[in-house]
Design a protein around this nucleic acid. Sequence first.
DNA 1: GGGTGTTGTTGGAACGCTCCAACTTGCGTT
DNA 2: AACGCAAGTTGGAGCGTTCCAACAACACCC
Lengths: 334, 334
Amino acid sequence: MAQPTILDVAARAGVSKSLVSLVMRDAPSVSEAKRRAVLAAAAELDYRPNAVARSLVQRRTRVLGVLLSDLHNTFFADVLDGIAGRAAERGYKAMLNTGNRAPSGEADAIETLLELRADGLILTGPRLEAVRITEAARTVPVVLVARTMSANAVDCVSNDDVAGATLAVEHLVKLGHRRIAHIDGGSGAGAEARKQGYARTMRRHGLTSQARTARGDYTEEGGAKGVAALLARGPRPTAILAANDLSAIGALDALTRSGLQVPEDISLVGYDNTSVAALRHIDLTTIDQPREAMGRTAVDLLLERLERRRKAARRVVMPPTLVVRGTTAPPRES
Amino acid sequence: MAQPTILDVAARAGVSKSLVSLVMRDAPSVSEAKRRAVLAAAAELDYRPNAVARSLVQRRTRVLGVLLSDLHNTFFADVLDGIAGRAAERGYKAMLNTGNRAPSGEADAIETLLELRADGLILTGPRLEAVRITEAARTVPVVLVARTMSANAVDCVSNDDVAGATLAVEHLVKLGHRRIAHIDGGSGAGAEARKQGYARTMRRHGLTSQARTARGDYTEEGGAKGVAALLARGPRPTAILAANDLSAIGALDALTRSGLQVPEDISLVGYDNTSVAALRHIDLTTIDQPREAMGRTAVDLLLERLERRRKAARRVVMPPTLVVRGTTAPPRES
DNA sequence: GGGTGTTGTTGGAACGCTCCAACTTGCGTT
DNA sequence: AACGCAAGTTGGAGCGTTCCAACAACACCC
């Protein structure tokens, strides 16, 4: 026989299928004798409840659909860890689909998840148009991670980019830096807020006149070009805040290639605390987003809607933290 | 109404549910008029076929269960890209589950995938005991990626580690190196084969007397310690082959910290071509495994069993390639 | 004009489970 | 002795599809 069903188990244990069902879901009012008989029969047959059939009758799957914009970014891998862990704790499974980097792929992935009748959707860093998201939210609760939008069927979890950039600048100021430059993230997600945090904190310390921003784009090359621009003219900054780790690494390389030592000649701070930043050969001071916690929070938000029928949107902003490593030090002539 | 069903669509279009079903699967023998009527009704109702119900009656889900041992390793992310892409091409979905790094987590993940009635399983780099794998293979076809075992219900896709290490040594020999050392991967997957490839190729070039191997463990720290051991005594090697990129980076850092220049004083080769190796600040010569191709192949193997009912095990070994970057050069006094 | 197809359409059964109302038993209470 | 109630157990209906046998309508061919 292909896969044994609940009927096979019932026959073998000499009870009704209903009783087997009760045992499988370990319901309270089953006599110990029958429970054991059923479990024995199930074990002998290598029976495994068919989640498909169960989902059909219960009209829910206990599966949370997760869309990941980019698996190659370990940032998302950490978020997923948080999602999967929390989902498991609460009796749900996380089902992953990637958009294969194209926005149209994301739409397809969502469609697939909806056909499979995921109970809810978590979209991490989606590049998809907002309309498509609200459309999906008509069918099923949706939580956005690392992207915000306002629609009352959609919840959001993000990190406080302004606060993160502030932490970074405060750290540099405390070390004695005054000529602190910024390589921004262009039109990338959160880049604007990070730039704002930088600018405001500079102002708060009366350093607006020392502030300089080079255009970047969250890439390694963007970081390298940013350095080139900053070194090309004006007094050399004693510290640089890059908009993310990848561009910080591009900057790091450009700096060492032009003969400058980090952190002796110039300090450098990244953003995201990716695993690469922790490599000892890079050892980058950076801002950490609580990635796993963001994933867990996303699950909690979803389940509030699913199990407690919350209707109003919630927007959770999580605090980033500073991780000091080897690329920051006091300026040379302090 | 919650979610419209096929009956709602049928009523609205004035046809039977069977006809709607035919249109949805776009069957050939449906009149153009009715097809349009059905599609219009479906669109108006925002109808989406229920994959759960379909799977129940067809007794298959067209879902391939994928177990990833570690999402943080971008190696697996690439494999997954290959899997997801190929699966989509062939009308399947990839459903991902992570083991959360614990072998027991892997067993649970497999159990979940089987309850959800995945049609087949792809296990990438599983740390799970072999018994559990053959057990799962009794229910459903299983393909292993980056791990091999022999059981005729299980197929394997791996890279040719011996050949990869050979490529690396040949490259160094061609540059003029003779004192080539190896930092191995300890008991890690494929480490033994890589060491063998190294040793054999050294022998082939009559360099056995120059060969030296330091113990490593695929980690950054292992690479650093390996360098310490190699520098501690004996003539300094002019080139090092590390068992993977991560340990190569550890080695790189240890070398520069002890005042040696790479590649001027010493050449360095990694293995895996992870995204980190491509960072310009690291710029590591390494061996590339065809990761996406491995993922695609895994899907193909699974579908051969699923659709063509192949029974005998297949073991596919894919050829690695050399990626030359900036950490290798001719030895100083050649 | 009676077979023989072909094309298009249909209702009912089945997939494997959960849910529910209903049944049986045994026990305590009046 | 009759009753009520809780605990334990059961069969049947139903979840939303697909599959299949059957049928209607029409064309074609001697």
